[in-house]
């Protein structure tokens, strides 16, 4: 079971209000010290280029946590069964390829 793995459950707090301000970097003094987005990750849903989405079948899932561990984004929450965060899932299919019981299937996004 997932719970036995003591997985850290970190979720973006999506309730936080997002002030969508466009940051113009015209002058060097306005630059942050390092290339860092100034909060844009809240508004930049990086899932826009996804061609297909992974669908987890809760019935088949044995709760091993492998998909959570392998997801490079990470866009899987370690719940039981795991839940995909479609705002950030890029559709790479790594979770699908690594699920030991084929509990994850792909659904075409382009249709």
């Amino acid at each position: 079971m997932l719970l036995q793995l003591k997985l850290p459950s970190i979720r973006l707090n999506k309730e936080i209000s997002v002030e969508e301000k466009k940051i113009e970097l015209n002058k060097v003094d306005e630059f942050p010290p390092m290339p860092v987005s100034l909060g844009s990750m809240r508004v930049n849903k990086t899932s826009s280029w996804r061609n297909f989405r992974p669908i987890i079948d809760g019935e088949k899932c044995i709760g091993c946590g492998i998909c959570w561990k392998f997801c490079p984004e990470p866009a899987i929450f370690p719940t039981n069964p795991p839940e995909v965060d479609y705002d950030y899932c890029k559709g790479c299919g790594i979770c699908i390829a690594n699920c030991p019981v084929d509990a994850i299937t792909r659904q075409d996004e382009t249709k």
Partner: peptide, 9 residues
Amino acid sequence: PNNPRAFGA
């Protein structure tokens, strides 16, 4: 996590 940013983009 409460103030998400991308580093080294």
